[in-house]
Simulated scan of single mutants.
Amino acid sequence: MSNLNNLLFGVYPYIAIVVCIVGCWIRFDREPYTWKADSSQMLSNKGFRVASNLFHIGVIFILMGHFVGLLTPPAIYHHFISSANKQMVALVVGGFFGVLCLIGLVMLIKRRLTDERVRASSKFSDIMILFMLLVQLILGLLTIFISLDHLDGSVMIMLSSWAQNIVILQGVQAALAIEPVHIIYKLHVFVGLTMILFFPFTRLVHVISVPIWYLGRRYQVVRER
Rank of each mutant, 00 (worst) to 15 (best):
I183F: 11
H150A: 14
A175N: 06
H150V: 06
L137C: 08
Q173C: 00
L134K: 02
R119L: 13
L137E: 06
M158C: 05
G140H: 10
I138P: 08
A163F: 02
I129V: 09
I157F: 00
S154V: 02
W162Q: 01
L148M: 15
L139H: 03
I127T: 15
I178A: 01
A163L: 02
S161C: 06
G153D: 06
R117A: 13
L159D: 12
V172C: 00
F131M: 03
S125T: 14
F145S: 14
S161T: 14
M158T: 00
L176W: 00
S154I: 04
L151C: 02
I184M: 14
S122E: 11
Q136Y: 07
F124E: 04
L169Q: 03
S121L: 10
N165L: 01
V172E: 11
Y185M: 06
F145T: 11
G171E: 11
S147F: 04
S122T: 12
Q136L: 09
L130Y: 15
S122R: 11
Q136N: 04
M156G: 12
M156P: 00
L139D: 06
L142P: 01
V118G: 01
R119C: 07
K123N: 06
L151I: 13
L141A: 00
I138A: 08
R117D: 09
M158V: 00
H182W: 06
L130C: 13
I166Q: 10
N165P: 01
H182G: 00
T143E: 10
L176R: 08
L151R: 14
L148I: 11
I144N: 08
Q170L: 02
I184T: 12
G153Q: 07
F124Y: 12
M128T: 07
M156F: 04
M128E: 06
M132L: 15
I166L: 13
G140M: 07
L130F: 15
